[in-house]
Design a protein around this nucleic acid. Structure first.
Lengths: 231, 231
DNA sequence: TAGATTGTTAATCGATTAACAATC
DNA sequence: TAGATTGTTAATCGATTAACAATC
């Protein structure tokens, strides 16, 4: 009857976004119900795992029918904390920062990108979509004045810690770190590290381990955990 | 005395790139030795985990001193499959694809980006750094003629499966999927899914779970697993 | 030598899976 | 009703941690 979300393991938290993304797609195709085994099949999981995971969200399934997609979507959104707007800023207006600032897909999850910052004078003032690159010196005030909840770090690795410190000081308590720096942060800050270079290294490693015979690994990186998906 | 790398778990494979990145940084600062506890401390792991992980690579530690960084680097590179060049192509010349094509950091891991593809006529022919965007119609031949080992999928989600099929048919056996599509692939293909949107959803979820009191989660996403790092 | 650190085996912990009564 | 599916408890599996002899 609903387990306490505070006891969700990291693996669970990594799977929830996958459920959401998948059922949103079904919804667009006017599909209304899904069973734990269908969802498991689609994502390479077991029905047990799916039902265990869903026991954390406020969602009643119905015997013989499964779960109503519309209800699952709103229950997942609530647990994922995106049933209300989340204001985000990007720090670093290099190639990656720019790409993220231009990305239209975040709106689907109620994420709005409110600003992009850099300390390179050549970039400051540059227009990126609807945004204009602001100097890092304005970072803290901006966060406070605009109720920013999350920061995305897309600066060079060597500046990552410093940026993180400023984000924390200004009151941000969620960080997506896209650099390979190992950030040192106070407790109670939600931080997710997503490193594309490291992902490439993992691909290379899997290929190397498999050599010639190759194994098929399916890594749900958002998480970024790894799930074996050969079959 | 060295365990079989074929028995490495996904968690191990996710940590190896972190070790490499970290010790390369130490090396640049002329540090020559590191112990399992120092490495563990730096990455938020236990010394036991580090020693267990290192038992998969060909590296002899020395009592009282630890591991020689230079040797660790080459042993890790070998297991990660980057002791030789890996040729990569990017499919999708949108914002993210462009950003990756411009990224200089991959060279440090022996990755060379050999081409970038798109099916948008407006993008074909466009110069991106040293590369020129090629049409998808040339994808398969290019892979075969240039001995491409890995493909990075940065197209819209709806085309991801089709692109993956073509990569596989052409002989690529390692894929980094940056879309939120759940790719259906034959066995023996190394695939890593790294989704920035999903990472943002995880950050939001952690913040939501923690509410007010916030917990500090450290997600090693490469691979992307999640490790609790509050302290 | 004494002390620190490795390498490896055993113990613990936690996540995943199986099983099954309850339900529609 | 019969059959399928949920919700949840128990069993299994595997990853992490602890412990300690061997080593420098």
């Amino acid at each position: 009857m609903g387990r306490d979300i505070k006891s969700m393991s990291n693996s669970v938290i990594q799977r929830l976004p996958r459920y959401l993304v998948y059922i949103q797609r079904l919804k667009r195709n006017d599909i209304q119900w899904i069973s734990s085994s269908e969802l498991a099949e689609a994502l390479g999981l077991t029905p047990s795992t799916v039902r265990q995971d869903l026991s954390y969200i406020e969602l009643a399934g119905i015997s013989k029918k499964g779960y109503k997609i519309e209800l699952m979507e709103s229950a997942l959104s609530k647990v994922l904390g995106i049933n209300h707007e989340q204001k985000i800023i990007i720090i670093g207006a290099g190639n990656l920062g720019k790409a993220l600032a231009m990305h239209r897909g975040f709106a689907a999850y109620n994420f709005t990108i409110e600003g992009i910052f850099d300390n390179n004078p050549e970039l400051i003032g540059l227009k990126i979509g609807m945004l204009e690159v602001k100097p890092i010196s304005q970072l803290k005030d901006f966060i406070k004045n605009n109720f920013i909840s999350m920061g995305v770090i897309a600066v060079p690795q060597t500046s990552a810690q410093e940026v993180a410190n400023q984000l924390i000081e200004a009151g941000v308590c969620g960080i997506l770190n896209l650099t390979s720096a190992n950030l040192n942060l106070p407790p109670k800050i939600a931080i997710v590290n997503t490193r594309i270079s490291a992902s490439l290294l993992e691909v290379a490693c899997f290929m190397n381990v498999a050599k010639g015979e190759c194994y098929n690994f399916n890594i749900a990186c958002e998480q970024s955990n790894i799930v074996l998906s050969d079959s």
